[in-house]
Amino acid sequence: MTDHETANEPEFEPSEYDMTIRRTFDAPRERVFEAWTDPEQVAQWWGPKGFTVPRCEMDVRPGGSFSIDMEGPDGTIYPDEGVFHEVDEPERLVVTSRAFEDDDGEFQLEVRQTVTFADRDGRTELTLKAEVLTATPEVAEALGGMELGWSQSLDKLEAYVDRSAGGTK
């Protein structure tokens, strides 16, 4: 037990927030992969419902970085930055993202995301695995909303790839 914990407080365990989401898109995997790796396209769908992306910069290559600012409905900017570890077009991306910088410049949250894009007869089965590497108790509320946030982002991605392909869903 640490100094700031009492006997009645449960210990904060970031790995309890690890998750996997699978989604099938009615679009070829090259199209879905491109929507994940082109900053102009990412800005069209990234973030939960009601959020926008005023800034998105990406250097998509192993060791390359990304920086995405999400703007909430109330105007709050949520910066997210990270590094690409693996880029296997059009099959797989592995990135680590960091968010919630504290007053000392330390990130309170670090998550490793592995995204795979499987061809399913012209459709794409996307699997997103998020592994929480580090997190402070201060970001527990954000972690609690991570799965919903990703689900809403993937809803927006689905609508985006449908629109950009001329779909009428």
Rank of each mutant, 00 (worst) to 15 (best):
E101P: 05
L128W: 08
R98P: 00
D80L: 13
T76K: 12
G75V: 01
A99E: 04
G82S: 06
F84L: 01
T116P: 07
R98N: 08
L93M: 08
L93H: 09
E101R: 15
T116Y: 06
G105S: 04
D102I: 04
V95E: 04
P73A: 13
E86G: 05
M70Y: 12
E101A: 07
L126K: 00
G72L: 15
G75K: 01
F100A: 03
L126I: 00
A99M: 14
T76M: 15
R98S: 07
G82R: 03
Q108Y: 02
T76R: 13
A130C: 03
E125I: 00
V87P: 13
T127I: 07
G75L: 01
G72Y: 10
A118Y: 08
V115M: 12
L109G: 01
R120E: 14
V115H: 10
I77P: 00
E110C: 09
G82C: 09
A118H: 11
L109K: 05
E91Q: 09
R98Q: 12
R98C: 02
G122Y: 09
H85C: 00
D119R: 14
L126Y: 00
G75T: 04
L128T: 05
R112L: 11
E125M: 00
E89N: 14
V111K: 03
T76F: 14
V94T: 09
E131C: 06
E131Y: 12
F84V: 01
E71L: 03
V94D: 05
Q113R: 12
H85T: 07
T116S: 12
P73Q: 06
E101Q: 13
V115C: 06
F117A: 02
V111N: 06
F84E: 01
I77N: 00
V87E: 10
D74E: 14
R120H: 03
T96C: 12
V83T: 14
D119Q: 13
R120K: 08
V83M: 03
V111D: 05
G75E: 04
E91N: 14
K129T: 10
R112H: 03
D102W: 03
E91T: 06
G72T: 14
M70T: 11
V95L: 11
Y78T: 06
P90H: 13
E131S: 13
E106V: 04
G105N: 09
G75M: 05
E89T: 15
P79W: 08
V87A: 11
T116D: 03
E125P: 00
F100S: 01
R123N: 06
E89F: 11
R112P: 10
A99F: 07
L128C: 02
G72Q: 15
E89K: 15
D121M: 01
K129G: 00
L128H: 04
D102E: 01
E71K: 15
T127M: 04
Q108V: 02
F117S: 02
T124N: 11
F117D: 02
D121H: 11
Q108G: 06
F100H: 04
D102K: 06
T116W: 10
L109E: 01
R92I: 06
P90K: 14
R98W: 02
Q108R: 15
P79G: 09
